[in-house]
Amino acid sequence: MKKQRTLSRSPKRIALTILGTGFFVILCLIIAFPIVAGLLASFRPGTELIRRGLALDFDISTMTLANYTYLFGGNVDSQKYFMWYKNSLIITLVSVVLTLLICYFVAYGLTMYDFKLRNLLFTLVIATMMVPFEILMLPLYKEIIKLHLIDTYFGVIVIGLCSASTIFFFRQYLGGLPKDLLSAARIDGANEYYISVKIILPLAKPAFASMGILCAMGAWNAILWPLLVLKGAEKFTLPIGLNTLLTPYGNNYDVLIAGSMFGILPIFIIFLLFQKYIIDGMTAGAVKG
């Protein structure tokens, strides 16, 4: 942190600080607006949404918890909603754990050893980042049908297990660890797999935290691929389920708005707890180019 020298208390400085901070206050008010308005709307009947749009109405006297008591009420809609919620939790958890482990070991192999195919393989990792997923979507869809993975959680998860950006990040991180650790452990008689699991993996915990959160956000909010793979309503994830509530008649808007707000919650909590790691993970690729 740079220390501000002489001018720190001058009127000019104070005016500038008010301007600078004020700018972000206004920007943040604009950015937060849709979510705040959505949150307020979730305490009013869904028919209001259809009639008035997303009005910013702070009038507490017209607010009611009805949408939430209905959502948690154990009725048919409530059961459906929490089934989707549970599905999303399962898919998120399993895909995060598997993705992190697989990508860690792949990155470990690419970083810790000098072998013939290393550079070629790393180039291929980068190449997979160069093609938008949407182009592969249809052939992958056909392939998943052929493999009988359609309408299964595994079909949703499997295509993303070797995430190029996750491998890339782990490689950046592992590249910063001293390689002497490996030779020391080898002299002690440890085998290659023991070293990767028991010696290096604990050192990579911050990288696991960063990537874990980013993967969780991606999996929790994924729409396009689950929309293709999951066919039965009992397998839907939360975004896909919420999407089915968007009928033109708006008869489901009570559940939709309350369910949407409650659906943001887990990711917001994780974000607030691990904010520092998220920013590290997300920006790893941007600095070194």
Partner: peptide, 20 residues
């Protein structure tokens, strides 16, 4: 605080933000 608020929209599913 500002960084956290400005990052919030990216955490929100397109299903939810699109509806809003």
């Amino acid at each position: 605080l500002w960084k956290a608020i400005l990052y919030m929209p990216a955490l929100t599913s397109v299903v939810i933000s699109g509806t809003l």
